[in-house]
């Protein structure tokens, strides 16, 4: 693992590829987060809503994405985390989490972050402003 302070603009954090999305993943997230919208867990409800099948909670993907930064929580913390939900995540999709340094100063590091599916399509994207402890 690279040390945070050694990262330069354009460098990436080590990518993480999740195992294929399963229904149990989404049931667990529903239980842990309290978001029981049935389009995330029940096929019939997803179809009724005009979807081809159940989709992951956007917040599940956003929650996963922040773990790229978890190993650095002794060096700083996520001060700002902005995400646009640009695509849907379906069962069996293979999601890869990415973060690239966009800018850095003495106090902060700004990362462009995204999650892409197996077709390299962005499903969420945004920015993380990581505040460094002095």
């Amino acid at each position: 693992m690279k040390r945070l302070m050694d990262l330069q603009t354009g460098d990436s954090l080590e990518e993480i590829t999740l195992k294929p999305v399963s229904r149990i993943d989404l049931i667990k997230y529903a239980g842990a987060s309290g978001d029981f919208n049935p389009i995330h867990t029940i096929d019939k409800e997803a179809t009724k809503a005009g979807l081809p099948g159940i989709i992951a909670h956007g917040m599940w993907t956003m929650g996963n994405l922040s773990k790229l930064f978890t190993p650095y929580l002794e060096d700083g913390f996520i001060q700002d985390y902005t995400i646009r939900f640009s695509g849907m995540v379906f069962l069996e999709d293979v999601v890869t989490l990415k973060a690239v340094v966009q800018d850095s100063s003495v106090t902060h590091m700004i990362f462009k972050v995204m999650a892409v599916n197996q077709d390299e399509k962005e499903v969420i994207k945004g920015k993380i402003n990581f505040k460094k402890y002095q």
């Binding site: 919208n37 809503a49 917040m59 922040s66 978890t70 985390y81 902005t82 995400i83 939900f85």
Partner: peptide, 30 residues
């Protein structure tokens, strides 16, 4: 974790009625 506040309760705004289906979550910032 940073997205943990999802589990908190924030109270209700009586005048605000949002259906529990058919909404799209467009963006999220913490």
């Amino acid at each position: 974790p940073p997205t943990f506040p999802r589990v908190f309760e924030y109270g209700t705004i009586d005048e605000l009625y949002l259906p529990n289906k058919g909404l799209i979550h467009g963006e999220q910032t913490y």
